[in-house]
Design a protein around this nucleic acid. Sequence first.
RNA 1: GUGGGUGUAGCUCAGUCGGCAGAGCACCAGGUUGUGGUCCUGGGUGUCGGGGGUUCAAGUCCCCUCACUCACCCCA
Length: 422
Amino acid sequence: MSSNFQAPKGVNEYVPPRSAIYLAARDAFAAVATRAGYSYLELPVFEDTALFSRGVGESTDVVSKEMYTFEDRGGRSLTLRPEFTVGVLRSVLQHNLHRGELPVKVWATGPAFRAEQPQHGRYRQFYQVDLEAIGSEDPAVDVETIALAWDWYRELGLTRHSLHLNSLGCRECRPVYRAALQEFLRGLDLDEATRARIELNPLRVLDDKRPAVRAQVETAPVVTDYLCGACKTHHDKVRELLADLEISWVDDPRLVRGLDYYTRTTYEFDHPLLGAQSGIGGGGRYDGLSEDIGGPPLPGIGFGLGLDRTVLAMEAEEAAAATVAGVTVYGVPLGEEAQRRIFGLVAALRRAGIAADMSYDGKKLKGAMRGADRSGAAYAVILGERDIAAGSAQVKDLASGDQVAVPLDEIVTTLKERLSQP
RNA sequence: GUGGGUGUAGCUCAGUCGGCAGAGCACCAGGUUGUGGUCCUGGGUGUCGGGGGUUCAAGUCCCCUCACUCACCCCA
């Protein structure tokens, strides 16, 4: 231990060299979203507590026991966002983006917070990329979001993830199913907590992983048998379009998500190499959410994908790109005057768009050259008393070992020229 | 929140019955007064997670605590 302080329990930090994987994944998502016409949204990390309790739902675990809630100095109750979707919708409504052309297509990224027992892949501060299409009921939009997530995973080199798909129905047909399910569940032999869940959030019982519960719900009624005509048509269209895009999925009528706002299309991405925390992302339609938080009727669909678990999946599949932050040119000064000139030269190289670094602290030649080697640079620029007297510096090709003297005022152009050649 | 496992050098880990804190890699210095990567030589860089207890003696045994981790739960 090098300090008395350590990061708070359950937070996940990205430090070099691993942070490069995180950054590459996030940047790749920005590209995927942007080329599909999604605009960036930067949101507050905390919101009015009531936004989450109304949006996500009082009956969810997320709201009832996992929120970081605090009172600010003005006595307002605020909560660190436990997810993105409601905040995105709140912002879209607040800024009247839905008054323009629909759907409103936006994406966001950053940390989210839930006070859970930490585990590998489950953190109290975790990171997501989020994407939402608001204001359209078209099943093509449902599939567009799925396809973008899918393409992102593929672009990152993942091959083993799977897509699970379900439809949860709408406010017409879901209550009918819910009642049927409750009736079935009440007849089972279950523990007290689970019995309570039957009344509060019966669909979640289907998600129980315990073998004893699993076996009993085997014969439970499934939601897809209860879909109304409109929901069924929608769901069939989604599956048809998915097939068109050659995305494979498994129909999972037991797929339930832990947030109350989902309607119709619901999906989840899993990765087999992550143990219990196998859900790497999920999303779905939330056609009633706008009204739940006091907005106009406005359908929507979107997803949140876990950056932490995606990075873990990349590492598990050994797909993590070996992106090492490196420079192209490395300055090696010998002596004070040389250090001053190299410092200026490195700045000039950077201004010319060439990635450059240098040796500090008056390191001896050997140590400075070692630094050049480790920097990954293609060229070292070595400058000592003799070179200054001659008005030139030594430009060394670190791969071949060849070294030539170049006049000081021609170094930037010389290197630029050399680097532009293949 | 519940139940189990682990915590020793920067990293991966060994440490027997309680008896001088170790290995590999990494790192640093030198071999080379102005030339890296290879090679050779030398160097342990440590709050044995933290606190307390037992003991002549604790990395090792006991208690508490913190963190990580596995499963439940939850979900990203």
